[in-house]
């Protein structure tokens, strides 16, 4: 074969390869586009599943009693009213209840951080007999459903007696129910709402910190408590933020303990919302459940708002915090 023909062939092949290159480039681009579209559709759909009911609640909270029964009304009320919010604010006694609730959850969260970080540090850095067994017990407190121990807890706080001291002195045991005291006590003793999980988080985090930190502090003459509060806890900020957010959110939303200990409804916002419909029925004489539900919707929005603000303020640190707090490996 003459060389010129071969050269022509090679040129042809060159062209073809270039063409297929551009083709695969377009193909890749198309695939990327389709994938993005697919992703977008899925995220949109799922976001709607989460947000849909919320949007519904939000729009319903502006409905007037006529809009409820008007079949032509969908989402956008014809006669929007703030009356529901007015009623909800009044019957929830919103600002006073919110104040009490905030004081309660912030105090609990501070105690929670202090105690669980201490315990976590103790498990992470010190050797003492039966350590592994005791840590196993922490895991048990995470896994064991709380309702297993609810009756004894109820009885315990119903007739609260400081290790039998009161009975010895001839005094009657105190009834600690109908107040937040049981929750404070349980949190102080490291067995509050999901304290086991927080102990676990702190332990994992402290294990990940370099030992040289404490050795340096020890050589400089710092005692273990000084080392813990001034050095280790400060370095554990990511874990502290994670625990703070979760503790606040869970405590705010907890209804199990607040029902069990029959906490006063004018101190716990979420508990109060569950009784608002009955209040509306008796005091405001709104007998129609469809109409009183509107005020409940308004109350729901009012209850979500404060925790949403706290969450949005701390959201940025949350994922970072979880990532660095060492739950992960």
């Amino acid at each position: 074969m003459p060389i010129s023909i071969i050269k022509a062939y090679v040129k042809k092949f060159d062209k073809i390869t270039i063409d297929s290159n551009t083709l695969s480039k377009y193909y890749g681009k198309l695939k990327g586009w389709l994938f993005t579209l697919f992703k977008f559709a899925i995220l949109l759909g799922l976001s709607y599943i989460i947000l849909g009911p919320l949007i519904n609640i939000f729009s319903n909270s502006f409905f007037s009693s006529e809009d409820v029964y008007n079949p032509a009304v969908f989402m956008i009320p014809i006669k929007p009213t703030l009356n529901n919010y007015h009623l909800a604010l009044l019957r929830l006694d919103y600002f006073s209840t919110l104040g009490h609730t905030l004081i309660y959850i912030i105090t609990i969260t501070l105690i929670q951080i202090l105690i669980t970080s201490m315990v976590g540090y103790g498990f992470a850095r010190f050797d003492f007999p039966l350590k592994n067994l005791l840590f196993g017990c922490v895991i048990i407190t995470i896994v064991l459903p709380t309702h297993t121990i609810m009756l004894p807890l109820y009885q315990h706080f119903r007739n609260w007696d400081l290790l039998g001291v009161f009975r010895l002195l001839g005094m009657k045991p105190i009834n600690l129910l109908s107040s937040e005291t049981p929750m404070y006590l349980m949190t102080i003793f490291g067995t509050g709402l999901r304290s086991g999980l927080f102990i676990y988080i702190f332990r994992q985090f402290f294990r990940g910190l370099p030992k040289e930190l404490e050795e340096a502090a020890f050589i400089d003459g710092a005692g273990p408590w000084y080392t813990f509060f001034r050095i280790m806890l400060v370095n554990a900020m990511p874990a502290v933020i994670t625990v703070a957010v979760f503790s606040m959110v869970w405590q705010y939303n907890d209804t199990f303990y607040s029902q069990l200990f029959t906490m006063p409804t004018d101190h716990i916002l979420t508990l109060r919302l569950s009784t608002i419909q009955a209040t509306l029925e008796f005091i405001d004489e709104i007998k129609d459940p469809m109409v009183s539900q509107l005020a409940v919707y308004a109350g729901t929005i009012l209850i979500i708002l404060p925790i949403l603000v706290i969450y949005l303020l701390m959201q940025k640190y949350l994922v970072e915090g979880i990532e660095r707090s060492g739950i992960v490996g």
């Binding site: 105690i115 669980t116 201490m118 315990v119 540090y121 103790g122 498990f123 850095r125 010190f126 050797d127 003492f128 007999p129 350590k131 005791l134 017990c137 922490v138 048990i140 407190t141 064991l144 121990i149 807890l153 315990h156 349980m186 102080i188 003793f189 490291g190 067995t191 304290s195 102990i199 273990p224 813990f228």
Partner: peptide, 20 residues
């Protein structure tokens, strides 16, 4: 060290024994 460690976990230990 063991004693210090036990004092660190003491609150939880009391709570665990009483409440759990």
């Amino acid at each position: 060290n063991a004693i210090v460690g036990l004092t660190f976990i003491l609150p939880w230990l009391i709570g665990f024994l009483i409440y759990y």
